[in-house]
């Protein structure tokens, strides 16, 4: 199959609109029109487009398309690193949204997919819901005041649902046991050749407590945080961005939700800036995930804090190594100092 290329005579939007008209004709019937096609910002390594499908009977279906980037963004490969790259493809990601929805997680419907050809990369469509995904607004805006007290329980409940999806019905995905994941980030950090004693202390702390990681194995979202959830005034309506999904320890998702970097200033609300760990664990149990040990979540909160620090450094070195020069990535490098500070507050 030839790689998808952008026709220089068309804008990216024009070329995509032609692809969409053909694809939606197959689903909704010939003559289906595309309106209000707009590329959404955020997520530099994926393209996300918003548009309405206007069917011949006059009804309108608001949709989102998430596809791989047409302009091949440079991403650090880490092929020699244990665990390698962790992302799933768009077809698997879309399938996971469907499976989570079928398991009872509040999710936007994924009605169909987009195969790659010479004009487009592959992707999946989802119904566009009216809600807020920006973490800062979710923790601050008056519109979500009634939702906030419910959210820690609801995200726990959602995780309890998708963590108990039977492994045999999942698409093929990378498995990543805790010890291997630790080695993965260890190797990435070593690749920077920049001694960071605070992170070293974190690695040692985690290495000595690996038995706290737990032994369960399940579908992990991989980036389950405030910022990847969709919320309306009544609470959780979607869990988004499954591209880091893998098989691993389910507590890793809950610990990641507790990392301070997504509390947006509300640092006393450990869970996403909106709730506490007891509510998270109650929701998780009610969702069918069983009763989890708070000490295990704490281990993964520490792990997550270290992981986010290293992810910040990956972006920083993407800039420093000249792969993608941008002041944004240079600035993100300094955010590693915030995670080092958080990490050292958590450790003993």
């Amino acid at each position: 199959m030839a790689e998808a290329v952008q026709d220089p005579k068309l804008t990216a939007g024009e070329q995509l609109a032609a692809v969409l008209r053909e694809r939606l004709a197959e689903e909704y019937g010939p003559g289906t029109e595309i309106e209000a096609l707009l590329r959404l910002s955020g997520g530099a390594s994926r393209e996300t487009w918003s548009f309405d499908a206007l069917k011949l009977d006059g009804t309108r279906q608001p949709l989102i398309l998430k596809r791989d980037p047409m302009d091949r963004q440079v991403e650090k490969q880490y092929e020699g690193v244990p665990g390698g790259r962790l992302n799933v493809g768009r077809l698997v990601e879309g399938r996971l949204l469907q499976l989570a929805g079928e398991a009872g997680v509040p999710m936007p419907k994924v009605p169909f997919f987009l195969d790659k050809d010479e004009r487009t990369t592959e992707g999946f469509f989802s119904h566009r819901l009216v809600g807020e995904a920006l973490g800062r607004r979710i923790v601050r805006d008056d519109a979500y005041a009634a939702a906030r007290p419910k959210l820690a329980y609801q995200v726990g409940h959602a995780a309890g649902r998708f963590h108990t999806i039977p492994l045999e019905i999942l698409p093929a995905m990378r498995g990543l046991p805790a010890a291997e994941e630790l080695l993965h980030y260890r190797a990435i950090m070593d690749s920077f050749h920049q001694p960071q004693a605070g992170f070293e202390y974190g690695f040692r702390w985690l290495q000595e407590r690996l038995q706290l990681a737990g032994e369960r194995y399940a579908l992990c979202h991989g980036d389950f945080r405030n910022g990847n959830i969709l919320v309306d005034q009544d609470g959780l309506i979607g869990v988004l961005d499954w591209e880091s999904a893998h098989l691993g320890n389910p507590s890793s998702d809950l610990g990641w939700m507790c990392v301070r970097s997504w509390r947006y200033g509300y640092h006393d609300n450990i869970v996403g800036g909106f709730g506490d760990v007891a509510e998270l664990l109650d929701g998780y149990e009610a969702g069918g995930g069983g009763r989890l040990d708070a000490e295990e979540i704490y281990f993964w909160q520490v792990f997550g804090t270290l992981r986010w620090g290293i992810l910040c450094m990956i972006l920083c070195f993407t800039h420093l190594d000249g792969e993608q020069r941008t002041v944004e990535y240079a600035g993100i490098g300094r955010r590693a100092a915030e995670t080092e500070y958080d990490l050292l507050q958590l450790l003993d």
């Binding site: 004693a197 202390y201 955010r335 100092a337 915030e338 080092e340 500070y341 050292l344 507050q345």
Partner: peptide, 18 residues
């Protein structure tokens, strides 16, 4: 002693960074 040192160093880094 190591943790005291690392915390002090991290606080200084934060005082500069944010």
């Amino acid at each position: 002693a190591v943790l005291d040192h690392l915390r002090k160093t991290a606080e200084d880094k934060i005082a500069l960074a944010n």
